[in-house]
Design a protein around this nucleic acid. Structure first.
Lengths: 349, 349
DNA sequence: GTGAAAGCGCTAACAT
DNA sequence: ATGTTAGCGCTTTCAC
């Protein structure tokens, strides 16, 4: 076995053509399934393809066609289950339609988001699935509009005047969380989140608050929102608890917030659900194997992915009409981390 | 704002050329930084580029050059922190060198792995970073050899006769885990893993066993290996415990195994570290915020990614020489899930 | 039915 | 110092 991996040139359409004794155009037609080719010739072409192991070069092919069969996907990160599943789904959906998915991570930076988008525009992708870092009003979406790119916005978005949007129904899920917490008797609840993701966080917060207040007008809802990053949130949370605040339940509006809340509980020696209850927006595999299992809102990843792709391909195929804004229903999984204040996590001090 | 997103044609190199009053070749030279262009003309070209917002079409450019500046990455899955971080790293390293990373998930299927590889070959990628589902002897690596593709194998591999390999030093890390568990007094340890990932699992198991036996010849090491999937492992584990086996510590050779172990502990009402100790190969963010925090072997993702890319680019640039096999050192993080049998997790029954 | 010709957007020889 | 020519591998009129 040679160490140096030799790059033998691959067979081109012309190699096939000459071997089959026809022109490249005919080969192209056979591959495209055009029926007007003489069966005998078609067979010779097929044989030649077989013998040479010929495969179309998708890039050369796209070069000639107007549009490229490439879909770009931009996610804020790849490290979480949510976006991992999302990319995986999107990839498989793109593939089903004969497209290749090129995924990139903006690493929670709007600047990088726009850079990536510019590069995807250079690639002349047929369309983009963008999960913006912040919301639908960022520079990335603006770039897409300015450059007439086709795209769909997902996750941290509500609706847009230019692009179709698909996201989890945060408000409804949060209302359900409120219903359950209030139902269990909680009357002092802390909500933690990241202000940056404006629209979504707003929806989650409002959905929660409205329902909670409706069901229990006497409920006290505290809110700790960090602007941009997770560490400041930790600091704020620490400060909040240091003041002696003692809610009976915490509702975290995003996954990292749930982790931060848990680690703050650890610091203070509080256990769920006896000392405090916890529910997080966004589920993860580990949440059901720890003790206690952590209650969570499960986002409908598959639905979001498939509706996003449906909408995107409809636009790619030229569908007109006003942008649509889909909200996919979530599931609320109440696990052991949530109890009743009466059972031990009641207001103290 | 129009709903239909109009696709105004982008400026081509000819548009720039005619606007600057030069030929396309000159524009190309300016962009390539060739110094033999008359400064005045260069400036006119630059201006035209600026005005038209011109950017090179990387695909058309690659078409003309022999090689394409695309790197393919194939991971067994995107859903875990490990591979998420890996893709993220690889993407950024590829980008630094002016390449685009196209990532695909084999979803733990060797068949899919080969399909993806074939597609990447069609794309004429410059090189591939393959994290095989099973090991270096699978059909995917064979495909790469047959087709003279340039590539690097990572993660579930040890060494190969045709490709450079980079992976975590499983054996050394496992030896360290053994050292620590034996040091804490454990003399009955269960190791769980997936047999499919042959080479790596073997290395982890052997590394662990050799060191454990060396330090404590009287130690009892039980092994529960499932062949292919996680659910059978759960069943085997359940059966193992049902027999009344009561090791004082469990070492899981992979992340999902750690989750399975935890959930089996839950079923039986065992708590770490009092009833049993637990260490897992592969760390995750949640492991340090749960109670108890779960001890884990941290894989050096960044090192693996960067050495893989280094090796890959060296080959792409024509470096000859025998394949190298790198092992990157891991870190063992002993957390609260590990205690001494004396402290309560001693052999019972 | 089939092939010649044109060209997607770009770059690299080779002339000039 | 610059432009002309000739493609990369493919598809698509459009004559024949």
């Amino acid at each position: 076995m040679a160490h140096r991996q030799d790059q033998q040139r691959r067979a081109s359409i012309h190699d096939v053509a000459s071997r089959a004794g026809v022109s490249a155009a005919t080969v192209s037609k056979v591959m495209a399934g055009v029926t007007t080719v003489k069966p005998e010739n078609a067979q010779r072409v097929l044989d030649a393809i077989e013998q040479l192991g010929y495969r179309v070069d998708p890039l050369a092919s796209d070069m000639r066609r107007a549009k490229r069969r490439i879909i770009g996907a931009i996610m804020p990160e790849f490290e979480s289950e949510f976006f991992g599943q999302m990319v995986s789904q999107l990839e498989s959906l793109a593939e089903q339609r004969g497209y290749t998915l090129v995924a990139a991570s903006s690493r929670e930076s709007e600047a990088r988001e726009t850079e990536i988008l510019a590069r995807m525009h250079d690639w002349r992708v047929a369309g983009v699935v963008l999960a913006p870092v912040r919301n639908e009003h960022g520079p990335a979406a603006a770039f897409m509009k300015t450059n007439g790119m086709t795209g769909v916005l997902i996750d941290r978005v509500l609706s847009d005047d230019a692009f179709d949007t698909v996201s989890a129904d945060s408000a409804a899920a949060s209302a359900e969380v409120a219903r359950q917490l209030i139902g269990k008797g909680h009357r002092h609840i802390l909500v933690v989140g990241l202000g940056e993701q404006a629209a979504t966080v707003r929806a989650r917060l409002d959905g929660f608050r409205a329902t909670a207040l409706e069901l229990a007008p006497d409920v006290r809802i505290d809110v700790v929102l960090a602007e941009t990053d997770v560490e400041p949130l930790r600091a704020q949370l620490r400060h909040y608890f240091a003041k002696g605040e003692r809610p009976t339940a915490v509702y975290s509006l995003f996954l990292k917030g749930t982790l931060v809340a848990l680690s703050e509980f650890r610091r203070r020696g509080w256990h769920c659900p006896n000392d405090i209850s916890l529910v997080g927006f966004d589920d993860a595999e580990w949440m059901q194997v720890t003790w206690p299992a952590i209650a969570a809102v499960v986002q409908p990843v598959r639905q979001i992915a498939s509706h996003a792709m449906e909408a995107l391909f409809a636009r790619i195929e030229g569908e007109a009409g006003p942008p649509t804004a889909r909200l996919e229903p979530c599931q609320v999984l109440m696990r052991e981390s949530v109890g009743s204040p009466a059972n031990g996590s009641g207001t103290r001090q």
